[in-house]
Every structure is written in C-alpha cells, then in structure tokens.
Simulated assay, not measured.
Amino acid sequence: MPPISACPTVEFVEDISVFHSAKAVFCAPSNPSGIEGLYRETIQCTPKWKTSGTTGPRRDCILLNTGSNMAGARGLDVARVHLLFSFALGEEVFECALIHKFCRSFTDPDPDNGLWIFKPDYDGAGYRVMSVVHIDSVVRAAHLLPVFKDQTPIPREIDFTHMLDVFKAFYLNKYIDYHAFETLS
C-alpha cells in the first residue's frame, strides 16, 4: 500500500460520482452464460432498498482478487460494499469501492460442510476496518450465511437488512450457484 503522502489531495480530484450498483461481468462458459461464456450479475450498494414490505440499506458482499496466487477461496478476500464511486484525476478516471473486509476465521474450511468461515474485521476500538479498492479487483458477488451458535433465539425484530451487522461470523456459500462453486472450490 502506498504511503498517504503519495495519495492525491482533494484539490486535484474532479468529477466525483456515486453509484448504487455495478455489473460484474466474468467469463463462465456454461448453459446460463451461453457459448460466449460471459456471465453478468449486479452488485447493489444502495442506502434505501425496498422489498417485501421491508425498507433498509442494501450493501452486497463481494469476492476480491488481491493478487494472491492461491486457488479458490484461499486466494480471494470477502468484503461488504458500502459505497461505489468514481473520480477523475487529470485525464484518468478511477472507479472504486469503499469496503468493509471480512477475515478468515480458520486456515481450512469447516470440516462439517466444506464452507469457509469469515468474521467482520474491526480495529482495537471496535470500528469497522474500511478500505478503498479499485473496482477491477472485484471478482463477483459473494453470498454469506450466518453462523448460528448455541440455542440462542433470534429476535423477531431482526430482518435481512441487519443480518451482516448482527451476527459475528458467516459461512461463505459456495453452493449458491454453479459459478460460485467453480470459483471457490
């Protein structure tokens, strides 16, 4: 990571734009993708989203390629998108995402179900560890499932818009679709 002194100051940044969704397009030859093999999915990052009578923010999770040469889920990071934005610096336009990273809990997947467990990353003071990444590092959307511990009942007031804020750990679901299975296995 470059030192902060190498980063541009605000006086040179122009044309800042915020987006509430992005399309991830990746090569995945299969029946749903057609013979060209391009598959497209939408990654949402919206402050107010309404579905089934519930209104709240929608901040999807993503898989990030951070340059690791490890195969499958070992070589990818998981993050939650909080903001999609772009800005111009001189003639060049940078498309970025503000993310909250998740950390792997173990060195191997859960032996009972084969899924990796991730936990939200917080600093020593309890604040989210946030980062800005280039949109080109996004591989695809990720699906996280809460890890239920003990026999603790879940309050009825909690709905799907709060799940990623309430639970302490999540399974990275490689069974959500064929492409996720191929990417994460």
Rank of each mutant, 00 (worst) to 15 (best):
G56C: 00
G56T: 01
R59S: 06
R59D: 03
R59P: 08
R59M: 10
R59Y: 12
D60V: 09
D60Q: 07
C61E: 08
I62T: 02
I62P: 06
L63G: 01
L64Q: 07
N65I: 10
T66V: 09
G67R: 05
S68K: 13
S68D: 08
M70P: 04
A71Q: 11
A71E: 15
A73D: 05
A73P: 01
A73I: 10
G75Y: 00
L76E: 02
D77T: 04
D77W: 00
D77K: 03
D77F: 05
A79G: 06
A79T: 08
R80Y: 12
R80P: 04
L83V: 09
L84Y: 00
L84C: 03
S86K: 13
A88C: 09
L89E: 02
E91M: 13
E91V: 06
V93C: 05
V93E: 14
F94D: 12
F94R: 12
E95R: 13
A97P: 14
A97E: 13
A97Y: 13
H100G: 01
K101T: 11
F102R: 07
R104Q: 12
R104P: 01
P109Y: 14
D110P: 06
D110W: 09
D110V: 14
N113A: 02
G114T: 13
G114Q: 12
L115A: 15
L115Q: 14
K119D: 05
P120A: 01
P120F: 07
P120E: 04
D121C: 12
D121Y: 07
Y122P: 03
D123V: 15
A125V: 15
G126I: 06
G126Q: 01
Y127Q: 13
V129Q: 07
S131C: 03
S131I: 00
V132T: 06
V133R: 03
V133H: 05
H134P: 06
H134F: 11
I135Q: 14
I135R: 07
I135D: 14
I135Y: 11
D136H: 07
D136T: 08
D136S: 09
V138Q: 14
V138P: 12
V139Q: 02
R140L: 00
A141G: 12
A141R: 14
A142F: 05
L144I: 08
L144A: 04
L145E: 08
L145H: 10
P146L: 07
P146S: 04
K149G: 03
K149A: 13
K149P: 01
D150G: 06
Q151I: 00
T152E: 08
T152N: 01
P153S: 03
